[in-house]
């Protein structure tokens, strides 16, 4: 490992023929900071994953979040259709979907709690139990696998000293394998919280983790 400052390998701006900054590739400069109330209703259900700290006990949908929830409701002909964005928003605030959270979402949308549980467990992005501050999802599907994704997983597990699905002792990391993240041209792709880190090699993993830890502090 060199002592060079951390450079995100993941924005795929470090391969190919383009001279772009990470912000330009990711569109951060274009999107800017999205308002907590969701902005225009058309995009209120699309989540920025912006809260750094998730509070399992946080109030569900107050103030700006209540506005955002109500905007979501206006975009669908049925209340039930708001379920997926609503669960997403709840997870955004609380970090995972506890039985109490599912129950509350069911109440808000006039659905049965069992129904909500059925839907929530169908989708992999809803965490059914708490995860680390950084949820590391390593794609090990074919294209990344051909490029050595298994070794990348091992590197993460070694660094975090965890087994797959476990949360590290310091609460910083939960490492899981993920299915294809649709970044096959930039293997190995790793999704950490909302971000894609692409072209990740085992050698870069410790530095990446150090960087994430520092970012969280």
């Amino acid at each position: 490992m060199s002592d060079a400052p951390f450079r995100n390998p993941g924005w795929a701006g470090n391969t190919g023929e383009f001279d772009l900054t990470e912000e330009q590739v990711r569109g951060d400069d274009f999107v800017g900071e999205r308002p907590k109330d969701g902005g225009h209703p058309s995009g209120a259900g699309a989540l920025p994953y912006m809260l750094a700290e998730k509070e399992p006990e946080a109030e569900l949908f107050e103030g700006e979040y209540q506005e955002r929830f109500e905007k979501i409701l206006t975009r669908y002909p049925t209340k039930q259709a708001s379920l997926l964005p609503t669960l997403g928003l709840a997870q955004e605030l609380r970090g995972y979907l506890s039985p109490e959270t599912m129950d509350r979402c069911a109440e808000l949308l006039d659905l049965s709690p069992a129904y909500v549980r059925g839907v929530a467990t169908f989708y992999t992005m809803y965490n059914k139990r708490p995860v680390g501050r950084h949820l590391v999802q390593v794609c090990t599907n074919i294209s990344c696998n051909l490029a050595g994704a298994d070794e990348v997983v091992d590197a993460f597990l070694r660094y975090t000293d965890t087994e797959l699905g476990e949360t590290s002792e310091d609460g910083n990391f939960t490492v899981i394998e993920a299915e294809c993240l649709a970044a096959c041209g930039f293997p190995t792709c790793v999704q950490i919280n909302s971000r894609y880190y692409e072209n990740v090699t085992p050698a870069e993993v410790p530095k990446l983790c150090e960087h994430l830890k520092a970012e969280g502090e």
Partner: peptide, 21 residues
């Protein structure tokens, strides 16, 4: 219907749709 894992893309789309509105 945009893939959930595409947080960045979703934000770009949301912003673009907002602009078009």
């Amino acid at each position: 219907y945009c893939r959930g894992e595409f947080f960045e893309v979703n934000q770009i789309l949301a912003r673009a749709v907002e602009d078009a509105y």
